[in-house]
C-alpha cells in the first residue's frame, strides 16, 4: 500500500515535470496537472479491470491519491501566482506588432508552418495584421489584431442595438424544462398555447424550443414526428 502511495506520487510528479518540459503545445485545452491526472487515471483504472489478479485497491487507491494531488495543486495555484507560473508556465507572445518572436517560437517548439496553420484556423492569413499572438498556458493561441484590422463594432459606429438576451430552453428533446419555464415566468398553459399555434399537440413532438428575454421563440419540430 505504501509502495503504491509513493509510486503514484513519484509517477505523478514525473509526468507533471515531463509535460511541463514538453511545452504548451502538447496540452490542448486542459491545464497541465489536469492532463497528467487524465492520462494517469485512464491508464491506472484499466489495469485492475483487465487483470483480476490485481486487487482493485491497486487501482482505486492511486486514483484517490491523484485526485487529492490535483485538488491540492489547483488550490495552491489559485493561492499563489508564482506556483501557477511554475506549474503551468506563462503565456508566451509569439507575435508582437506583426513581428514573429523567434526566441519564444523556439522556446515553445513552434515551427513557422505550425504558427501559420494556427493563424489559418482563426482566419488570419497576414501576420503583419496581428498586434499580438499569445500562446496561452492551456495551449490555445489567441490573436489580437491591430485596431485598424479589427471588425467594426456597433459601438464604434454609434448604432443602437437591441439585446434579445440569453435564450432559455423550454423543451429539450420532447421534455418540458419546468425550471427554465418558471425562470422566464411562464407556465405550461402558455407553452401549450404556443404549441397549438404551431400546430403541435404535445411537447413530445418538439425537438427544441427556446425563448429569449425579448420573448422571441426558436422552435424545431421533432423529425420523428413529422
Amino acid at each position: 500500500m505504501a509502495i503504491i502511495f509513493l509510486r503514484t506520487i513519484i509517477i505523478f510528479l514525473a509526468l507533471l515535470t515531463a509535460m511541463r518540459l514538453m511545452g504548451k503545445r502538447q496540452l490542448g485545452e486542459l491545464e497541465l496537472s489536469e492532463l497528467v491526472i487524465t492520462v494517469l487515471i485512464s491508464d491506472i483504472a484499466a489495469h485492475p479491470l483487465q487483470d483480476i489478479g490485481i486487487p482493485l485497491m491497486n487501482g482505486v487507491l492511486p486514483i484517490i491519491i491523484l485526485l487529492c494531488c490535483e485538488l491540492i495543486i489547483s488550490g495552491i495555484m489559485v493561492k499563489s501566482t508564482r506556483a501557477k507560473e511554475l506549474l503551468c508556465g506563462k503565456p508566451s507572445f509569439l507575435i508582437i506588432d506583426g513581428v514573429i518572436n523567434q526566441e519564444q517560437m523556439k522556446k515553445n517548439r513552434f515551427t513557422p508552418d505550425e504558427l501559420a496553420e494556427e493563424l489559418r484556423n482563426q482566419s488570419v492569413l497576414d501576420i503583419s495584421k496581428i498586434k499580438y499572438a499569445i500562446l496561452e498556458t492551456d495551449g490555445n493561441l489567441n490573436i489580437v489584431l491591430f485596431p485598424s484590422e479589427r471588425p467594426v463594432t456597433a459601438g464604434q459606429l454609434q448604432l443602437e442595438t437591441s439585446d434579445s438576451g440569453y435564450p432559455v430552453i423550454v423543451i429539450n428533446n420532447g421534455q418540458i424544462m419546468k425550471k427554465n419555464l418558471s425562470l422566464i415566468e411562464k407556465d405550461e398553459k402558455w407553452l401549450q398555447k404556443e404549441l397549438t399555434a404551431r400546430k403541435v399537440k404535445s411537447p413530445k413532438d418538439v425537438y427544441l424550443m427556446s425563448v429569449n428575454e425579448a420573448g422571441q421563440i426558436y422552435f424545431a419540430k421533432s423529425e420523428d414526428k413529422k
Binding site: 487507491l61 491519491i65 487529492c68
Partner: peptide
C-alpha cells in the same frame, strides 16, 4: 484542499 491533504495523510 484541507480535505485532500487530510485524506492523503490518512492514506
Amino acid at each position: 484542499e484541507l480535505v485532500a491533504v487530510s485524506l492523503i495523510l490518512i492514506i
